[in-house]
């Protein structure tokens, strides 16, 4: 008999209900903008394609619509994201963040609809030279759409220090871990380019699949 993981379906779901929070499926820092700000993003990897928008009524909250397409099942989910910046550490040369992420929506597979959602935690730290983040998320959208726990870690280094308004470049390494069904790791080296309100990321995973992310803030 398999031993249940600490983040079993039941405990993850009750945590989701408790926190009343849910999240987008691709690893991203900056889930919340300044008070009154908007962000629009698209995240694409071998598992999912996602488009979402987040409006921040305050500097610690974000809400907005999302649409996800899960490539392996062909299922989809559309709904609303709720992000909460639980704490930010503003230091002289660095910034750290702790977010709770969540999303609630309608999952759809071949026209069959049911409720779905996700919940997770994201922590990140960055200076102008180094970057590190960890995110986990449990998605509960039925086995026909997506039912999975995923952990994502990232480290990054900026080869040069750019001033505001000029092009910022990052070399990053992302690791995705699927402890449940897939029992696998995927490692993705990627490049992040960042200038003013635009951020783009592109990489190729260890199994050959491309990854592409875009983010605009306004």
């Amino acid at each position: 008999m398999p031993i249940r993981k600490p983040w079993s379906r039941g405990s993850a779901l009750s945590t989701a209900v408790l926190l009343c929070l849910l999240s987008p499926p691709a690893a991203q820092a900056r889930l919340i903008s300044y008070a009154g700000g908007w962000m629009v993003m698209s995240n694409n990897d071998q598992f999912a394609n996602e488009v979402s928008a987040v409006y921040s009524p305050t500097a610690t909250t974000g809400i907005g619509p999302f649409y996800d397409y899960y490539r392996d099942t062909g299922g989809q989910m559309a709904g609303l994201d709720f992000n909460w910046l639980a704490h930010r550490w503003n230091q002289k040369d660095s910034q750290g963040n702790l977010y709770f992420l969540s999303g609630l929506g309608v999952a759809n597979h071949d026209g069959e609809e049911h409720a779905g959602g996700f919940a997770g935690i994201e922590a990140d730290w960055e200076s102008r030279r180094y970057y590190a983040s960890y995110e986990n998320r449990y998605t509960e959208a039925g086995h026909d759409v997506r039912q999975e726990f995923q952990e994502t870690g990232r480290i990054g280094i900026a080869p040069y220090i750019a001033e505001s308004g000029s092009l910022h470049s990052w070399l990053m390494l992302q690791a995705d871990h699927f402890p449940e069904d897939r029992k696998s790791w995927v490692v993705t080296p990627l490049v992040r380019l960042f200038q003013g309100p635009y951020l783009a990321e592109a990489g190729v995973a260890s199994n050959g699949h491309p990854m592409f992310n875009l983010m605009i803030t306004f």
């Binding site: 660095s94 910034q95 505001s164 910022h168 960042f194 003013g196």
Partner: peptide, 12 residues
């Protein structure tokens, strides 16, 4: 200001 690390900070 403390916490200014990237261009999104500058844009904000």
């Amino acid at each position: 200001v403390n916490g200014l690390v990237c261009d999104f900070c500058a844009v904000s």
